[in-house]
């Protein structure tokens, strides 16, 4: 059933002479035909999860525990060769900065066509036809001419369309999108997110892990969402349920701190204090120093992520 399974994933960085946990014991399943949102504030470990799955971690990082399964392949102990084959075919990724995926030295056409030839074993004319088709699908006008252009000749929105075209070219089962629209204008963001949903999820039944810090994006395009705080998932479930009835005090505070609709001028809810740094993670529930409901026990025991009746999962003693 599940396309991608994370089981107790734990990832560490070596920094200041010791290993620090950036992602702690994260488990979830990505299902076919869904967009799963991964939200949380800066530094909570979202990108680290993405790079752990892709096995593209920095040299000072290691997966110290848990497993990541892509179908029946255990990515955490796959060989570099096997990973090379999977990346860009069954498993694709797009980034906040689309230039990451594009080589400035080659024309866009060259890069799209090369990917197609490599992974789909198409002859050059067929690959070219398919490339044109892809550029049209992602909404690039005058695709013929655009094939001859270099990445620097494209706006941020256009580059992200091309990165998306490359990412979807080989029909991936799983797309990991790390803040793909954060650097774009809202009208372009709307178009790109719409494309992701239509081309990947609806037409191909792929699963998308969409990393964002924008709760509006989650509400608009995601089916389920994982809310992260300081390296852990604190709440997980259907988007509708979580926005209607957020259970974890952190999710509640996050939603209440949004400036928008109707609540003109009232003070926004403050979360006191600040996100703890990696080398300074609180004991027990990591949110306890900032939590308005913290009990004495919250300082000592880390609450596990538990499933409740409606299916929503939450890690907080208030719901034990």
């Amino acid at each position: 059933m599940s396309l991608l399974s994370l089981r107790h994933l734990t990832t560490e960085f070596y920094s200041g002479g010791r290993w620090l946990e950036a992602v702690s014991d994260v488990s979830f399943d990505l299902l076919p035909g869904e967009i799963l949102g991964l939200v949380g504030e800066s530094g909570c470990g979202k990108s680290t999860i993405a790079y752990s799955v892709m096995r593209l971690l920095a040299s000072n990082a290691r997966i110290s525990g848990g497993e990541v399964w892509l179908g029946d392949v255990n990515l955490t102990d796959a060989s570099e060769d096997a990973l090379q084959d999977l990346r860009g075919s069954r498993l694709s990724m797009i980034f906040q900065d689309p230039m990451t995926a594009l080589d400035s030295l080659f024309t866009v056409g060259h890069q799209v066509i090369e990917t197609l030839q490599e992974h789909l074993a198409l002859d050059p004319p067929a690959a070219r036809e398919r490339a044109l088709d892809l550029l049209r699908q992602v909404g690039i006008p005058a695709a013929e001419e655009r094939l001859k252009a270099y990445p620097y000749q494209f706006s941020g929105g256009m580059s992200q369309r091309i990165a998306l075209a490359i990412a979807i070219s080989c029909h991936p089962q799983v797309l990991i999108a790390d803040e793909p629209t954060t650097a774009l204008d809202v009208t372009i963001q709307a178009q790109i997110l719409h494309l992701i949903r239509r081309l990947l999820v609806e037409e191909q039944g792929a699963g998308v892990l969409l990393i964002t810090h924008d709760l509006g994006v989650v509400a608009q395009v995601c089916d389920r969402v994982a809310v992260m705080y300081a390296g852990k998932i604190v709440e997980f479930g259907a988007v509708d349920a979580i926005f209607r009835d957020p259970l974890h005090p952190y999710t509640q505070a996050l939603l209440n701190s949004l400036p928008s609709q109707g609540i003109q001028r009232g003070a926004l809810e403050n979360i006191r204090g600040r996100v703890p740094s990696l080398d300074d993670r609180p004991t027990g529930c990591r949110f306890h120093p900032r939590c308005p409901h913290a009990l004495a026990i919250c300082r000592e025991e880390a609450p596990p992520l538990l499933r409740r009746d409606g299916g929503q999962e939450v890690a907080c003693v208030l719901y034990d």
Partner: peptide, 12 residues
């Protein structure tokens, strides 16, 4: 604008 309200999904 992505409204943070899943009950008001818009046609993007």
């Amino acid at each position: 604008i992505p409204l943070p309200d899943p009950s008001r999904r818009v046609n993007w």
